[in-house]
Write a protein that binds this DNA or RNA. Structure first.
Lengths: 143, 143
DNA sequence: AAAGTGAATGCAAAAGCTTCTCATCTATTG
DNA sequence: CAATAGATGAGAAGCTTTTGCATTCACTTT
């Protein structure tokens, strides 16, 4: 379980690391900020400092266990690395985040990078918009 | 000239606003941070506070005169709004920023948003990579 | 051209997110 | 189970960005 992943990353298996990884795996919201994680830990009765949350998330990112994204709000959000690259579309009204993959876009990016003489290391595509479906939470709540 | 654009934006024509707009128009680097702008103003002998730079850039953004981007480094960069949407590819070695437009990617984004039930308000695509061409500054300087 | 008024500015302080410092504590190894 | 390298918590510090407030300025009205 979590222990192995942490050990594989070359990190000691400690309570904060296990709890944070568990939380990322179980959280209904895949995309969380360090503050979110910290608050969830507090709510779960864990006594883990915010500095540790940042440290652990950074280590997990370096180890490839999680990915870090910079959405428009300014702060960073983290998500479990599924191994499959994907991009994001975010509702500017309710903040809901959906993931998508589009091979056409991926391919075009490779072509563009090549044309411009770049070797891609990574990329980030975020679409911002409004949910139109009435099944979106923000429609039900009316915010 | 600049005065008209500022007036059109519903803002008073003041020295800081004119100088900042001039600077954005003349700067060899299109993508600059607030700090960059501040330092360039200082270097040009202008006595304009950093807070004013932030305020003016924010107002320019609200007025559609400039665009704000969040690249990976953490801070925001601003660029003059050319009216033509474009995306960015950034060299992770030298920081050089290139702009590109790809109608195929734009189209796919519209289709994806529609499929997922979103009405796009904006989007941001940034590709990170390494320059391969020897004509890139970072190769010449060897950093 | 001078006065009046609301907006704009500069400075310093504060805020928000993230990192660092350091003394204490803990997981792992032998 | 002792030894040790690494991890943690709390608070300080760092950075970018925003805010509060007294002063100054742009634009309108005399």
């Amino acid at each position: 379980m979590e222990d192995q992943e942490i050990r594989k990353a070359g990190l000691k298996v400690t309570v904060p690391r296990v709890k944070i990884l568990e939380l990322l795996e179980k959280s209904p919201e895949r995309h969380v900020s360090a503050e979110d994680v910290y608050k969830m830990l507090l709510a779960a009765g864990e006594d883990i400092g915010l500095a540790t949350v940042y440290r652990v998330l950074t280590q997990f990112e370096a180890a490839g266990l999680v990915e870090k994204h910079h959405f428009e709000d300014g702060y960073s959000v983290f998500e479990l690395n599924t191994g499959k690259h994907h991009d994001h579309i975010i509702c500017v009204t309710c903040g809901r985040v959906e993931e998508f993959v589009d091979e056409t876009i991926e391919k075009r990016q490779r072509i563009i990078a090549e044309e411009l003489g770049f070797q891609i290391s990574e990329h980030e595509l975020v679409i911002y918009g409004k949910c139109l479906d009435k099944n979106c939470d923000c429609k039900k709540k009316g915010d």
